[in-house]
Design a protein around this nucleic acid. Sequence first.
DNA 1: CAAATAAGGATAAATAATATCCGTATTGGG
DNA 2: CCCAATACGGATATTATTTATCCTTATTTG
Lengths: 162, 162
Amino acid sequence: MILKSQVEWALHCCTILAGLPNGRYLSTKALAEFHGVPKEYLSKALQSLSQAKLVDSTLGPSGGYRLSRPAAEISFLDVVEAVEGKERTFVCNNIRTNNPCRPKSYCEAGPCAIARIMWEADEAWRASLRSVTLAALIQTLEKEIPVTLWQSSSEWVLNRAG
Amino acid sequence: MILKSQVEWALHCCTILAGLPNGRYLSTKALAEFHGVPKEYLSKALQSLSQAKLVDSTLGPSGGYRLSRPAAEISFLDVVEAVEGKERTFVCNNIRTNNPCRPKSYCEAGPCAIARIMWEADEAWRASLRSVTLAALIQTLEKEIPVTLWQSSSEWVLNRAG
DNA sequence: CAAATAAGGATAAATAATATCCGTATTGGG
DNA sequence: CCCAATACGGATATTATTTATCCTTATTTG
């Protein structure tokens, strides 16, 4: 059980978009080039972000994507769920109903106890992702990344932003 | 990203094994029949449990599996990791190194900040799974499952246990 | 009007999950 | 001692998912 690489790409793209000056857009092409990933496939991830309303898009030359709201109001969970979907990571197939001793008429009261425990863990995972915003990530990155690299990257992006 | 169905099967099988009288074994065949799942494929899941030393196995007629230690000392995480592996659910491909502004000689200090946050959530998931034992599960099930069904299932299993 | 873009459908390739089959070694019961 | 039942592991097949590419359409900027 491994998350799609699109999750990683989407998070990195959101990080870049969060650094854009207000109102500017950045294209799929620029994002793909910056991260060294295939443009056509990255495009699918960005479309997922768009459908989840995490980003706005605009057409034409100088078109592209920007965050649809402040980075402080977008969590890791928002991005992960936009790409992976909101379904739980554990699916209960209710195999308890295959118990040969179970009366045909018997109707289970609620979800299987095993599923409930697995779903609780799933929720713990989501709660952790929900607790971190893109703004918090950027704050961390600003401390960690050398100033020169940070600045040159900003310039690179700005040169390509519509 | 969805867990293998073998995880569900393994958890249900461990539940049954936890209910066995001390020293008795239950075969793959019986476990497969009880849960209505394919015997040959379930066998792979049980082999995973065996390799992880969560269960002991014995050969020959009246052979099968039993828990290798008390149910109170086996957590959901033990079972999940036995089947799914211990690898983290988020893989960092370090695409930050593709940044066109990054000097060729530049050496990253530590893991990517994005990966660290994803791994923290992964750890929250594992911590939740680690906190629940098979013994706790059984305690819950004893309350939820009708006594008649509980007893008839016990008998069914006991009739087939070596 | 031309070039660049997002969006989305169709398709292909690669990988992982699900499943079956078979041979081997081991064990308990007759 | 022999036979049947078993765990184990390897090989293979089938299906679903992930990864990726290609192409068409509508839209927008200059």
